[in-house]
Amino acid sequence: MTTQPSPSDPAAVALELERIRRTIEVGFTRTDGALALLVQRHDQTDEALKEHSRRLDDHEARLDVLERGENERQVRDRTRLDVLERSRWPLPSVAALVGLCALLLSLYEFAQK
């Protein structure tokens, strides 16, 4: 059974004040540690957010280039397609010319009979 110190005993009062001070210091130390951990996590999250934002900007820039058709591959393919279109045979024109010749030949043979 513990006895309560009398309020008039200065040593007991000083001892109690020292215990309260120690308890408050421990509480402040724990609070400071928790705040330091929160600050560290915030900094890590902030760095990760900046990295993700930078990567997102890079992806958006690449998508813009693709949408505008300014990619090296797209320019090369477009140039190649233009060359192929210029050098292709004019098949519809040749087909129309052959059909016209066949019609004229048929009319000539019909007129000869």
Results as ranks from 00 to 15, higher is better:
A48E: 07
P92N: 06
E70T: 08
E72S: 08
G69S: 00
L35G: 00
G33Q: 10
E25G: 04
R88W: 03
D43I: 12
H52E: 15
E16L: 07
A95W: 00
G69H: 00
P5W: 07
R54L: 05
L103Y: 00
E60Q: 15
L63Y: 03
A95N: 05
Q44A: 13
A95V: 13
T45Q: 13
A14Y: 01
R78C: 12
G33N: 14
D77E: 15
L91I: 05
V94M: 14
C101Q: 03
K113N: 07
A36C: 02
L107D: 00
L63H: 00
R41W: 02
F110M: 04
D43Q: 12
D58M: 01
E18D: 07
A36R: 09
L103F: 01
R80N: 06
A61Y: 00
L15H: 14
R80M: 03
R78F: 09
C101I: 01
S93K: 13
K50N: 13
M1A: 14
A102N: 05
L49W: 04
T79Q: 11
V65M: 07
L91Y: 00
T45L: 05
A95S: 07
I20F: 08
A61T: 07
A95M: 08
R22H: 14
T31H: 14
E67G: 02
V98F: 01
L63F: 03
A11Q: 15
R86H: 10
R78T: 10
D58A: 05
L91S: 02
G27N: 10
L49R: 07
H59M: 12
E18Y: 05
Y108E: 05
E85D: 10
H59T: 06
E70D: 08
E85W: 04
R78K: 08
A14Q: 11
S8D: 12
L66E: 02
E18I: 01
V75K: 12
S6C: 14
L15M: 15
L35I: 02
T3W: 08
E51P: 08
T23I: 14
S106G: 03
T29F: 04
D57P: 02
